[in-house]
Design a protein around this nucleic acid. Structure first.
Lengths: 225, 225
DNA sequence: GTCTTCTGTGTTGTATGCAACATGAGGATG
DNA sequence: CATCCTCATGTTGCATACAACACAGAAGAC
């Protein structure tokens, strides 16, 4: 391709940002180094300008790191950062669980109950893929059920930084965790249904802490190999 | 100005971003509407391109809202958003206080003690300006003392969205709050020094809730006038 | 008088060209 | 052989030109 033919843009502003974010969060991109603006411009069939703007936003979101005059790199949290992010994750999800407990009977409660039942079936069937998807859905449902849009916003950013999708698969390798995790989910939901905000929060927080410990342990093992 | 003379830039990338953020957070900008790219470009003596990139980042931070083909506007949280943000603020600061309590004797504890003493003097002297600055410093010291960089990062974003600087002056108009606030600070510090992580967290959270309620009440009164 | 339509003006959205710099490979030098 | 220097190459950073659109206000129809 030599010159842009001024054809209609395949992806415009916000759509391009989403596409780029998905591409980065997806694991189909070389983790080491690349992400050149020109290359992305070709791939998305736009000029470098909108690509640059999108990358700047992703940098503000903590997803990439732009080293001036060098290149744009996917940001990977190290052990410390991951521990820090998990700490915040537990706190925010705890807040969400507590708020949800205070809301009374809303539709999210049924969704959570159904999720737990589906999770148990998936666990028995040994469908790890489905199970991890359900776990993700459980946590996310709680956060959205808190009825706090800003919380959803900040939580979303946090999860992006964690690159959580890359971890969930890992975290469930340990067979023992699955049963424990489901049990913890049940207890969290019990406290929520019982409108026990405090216990719901604390149980949720401990659940996240356990899950985080398991995940980070698994990652350490993998890196050691 | 007609053409750029290719002189050295007065403000470059990150510096420009900071300058713009300060300008927006500072109250010297018309809240209603403006923020045209061309205008900012003239003011900072750069072309529109870096201005645009900075604005996109500020949008990602939640400080401004870019309405396509219309203009860039300073984002002002409404009542609901403010309540939501305060809820998260309390939770994050609670987390920070709890973490700080677990750290043992670090330099931040002395800083907090000194801050309380200074605050009491400022309160007696009736220096509202100094007092509000010290309150801000107290909270910020706790967050930084948690030794969690990601927490600092997310907390910073949250505070920017709250446009907290515009509120602190308001929140302290109520004379009764000053004494109560200082007392709450003291109790928080007591629990931190006593390494009582749980009580430190809860006390901090309640303190933020009280402060938030007072602030939002004051704002409601002001808007009614 | 009211509603509709149209056009002017200002804004952002994008493409492109060029300058500045970081980096690494290769040769010159001791 | 080691070290430093030079420069070729690729990248981002910025300035500019132009296109596309939103909105308001005026002109026109009824």
């Amino acid at each position: 391709m030599t010159t842009m033919d001024h054809l209609p843009h395949v992806q415009s502003g916000p759509a391009l940002l989403d596409a780029l974010r998905r591409k980065i969060l997806s694991e189909d991109v070389e983790l080491g180094v690349p992400l050149s603006e020109a290359q992305l411009a070709q791939e998305f069939e736009v000029s470098r300008t909108p690509i640059r703007e999108a990358l700047r936003q992703l940098q503000a979101e903590g997803l990439v790191e732009i080293r001036s005059k060098v290149g744009t790199f996917i940001r990977e949290p190290d052990h410390r950062e991951m521990a820090e992010l998990f700490q915040i994750k537990g706190n925010l999800e705890g807040l969400a669980a507590g708020l949800l407990a205070q809301r009374g009977p809303v539709s999210e409660l049924e969704a959570l109950q159904a999720n737990i039942e589906d999770s148990e079936r998936a666990a028995e069937a040994g469908d790890a893929e489905l199970y991890s998807r359900l776990v993700h859905e459980f946590h996310w449902t709680i956060v959205q059920g808190a009825d706090n849009r800003k919380l959803v916003e900040h939580y979303s950013r946090l999860m992006n930084q964690l690159a959580y999708h890359r971890l969930v698969r890992t975290s469930l390798q340990q067979k023992g965790r699955i049963r424990a995790s489901t049990g913890e989910h049940e207890r969290v939901l019990e406290h929520i249904v019982g409108k026990d905000s405090m216990r719901a929060e604390m149980t949720m927080r401990q659940h996240v802490a356990s899950s985080a410990a398991s995940t980070m342990n698994e990652i350490a093992l993998r890196e050691g190999a």
